[in-house]
Computed example of a mutant assay.
Amino acid sequence: MLTMSYLVALAFLAIIASLGAALFFMLRGGQAEAPDKSKRMARALAMRVGFSVLLFVCMLVSWKMGWVHPTGIAAGQ
């Protein structure tokens, strides 16, 4: 399905964006804001994990519903 590929691409972009946000908060300078920086970095990484799990569940449900089909080398070849 064409919309499914858009959903997967959007999920990958969200994963990359949250990983970039975590990197930004980790590298941002200043010791005065260290506790806040740590919280924001942890939240961004937690969002990345959540997006990854959501993408996996969506792909599993799509496969079970028959919306996507596995491709590649057939088993035993």
Rank of each mutant, 00 (worst) to 15 (best):
L45W: 13
R48I: 01
L54N: 00
D36R: 10
V49M: 06
A44F: 04
F56L: 13
V61Y: 06
R28H: 13
S38T: 09
R40S: 10
F51V: 06
A46S: 14
L45R: 12
G30T: 06
M59E: 05
Q31A: 11
G29S: 08
P35R: 13
L27Y: 06
S38K: 11
L55P: 03
E33F: 11
G30A: 05
F56M: 13
L27H: 10
V49P: 00
R28M: 15
E33D: 03
F51Y: 15
F51T: 05
S38R: 01
L54M: 14
M59S: 06
R43L: 11
V53R: 02
F51I: 02
E33P: 01
L60W: 09
V53M: 11
Q31E: 13
A34W: 12
V53I: 15
A32K: 14
D36Y: 04
V53Q: 04
A34V: 08
S38L: 09
L54V: 15
V57T: 08
S52H: 10
A34Q: 15
V61H: 03
A42C: 07
V49H: 04
F51S: 06
L54F: 09
V49C: 01
R48D: 05
G30V: 04
R43S: 11
S38N: 02
R43W: 04
M59D: 03
K37I: 07
K39A: 13
A42E: 10
G50I: 05
M59N: 09
L45A: 10
R28S: 14
K37G: 08
L45C: 07
R43I: 13
G29R: 04
F51M: 08
L60S: 04
M59V: 08
L55G: 02
A34K: 14
S38D: 01
A32N: 07
G29K: 11
L55M: 15
L55C: 11
S52K: 10
S38C: 00
K37E: 01
V57Q: 03
L60H: 03
E33N: 09
R28V: 15
D36I: 14
V57H: 01
R43A: 10
M59I: 07
K37P: 01
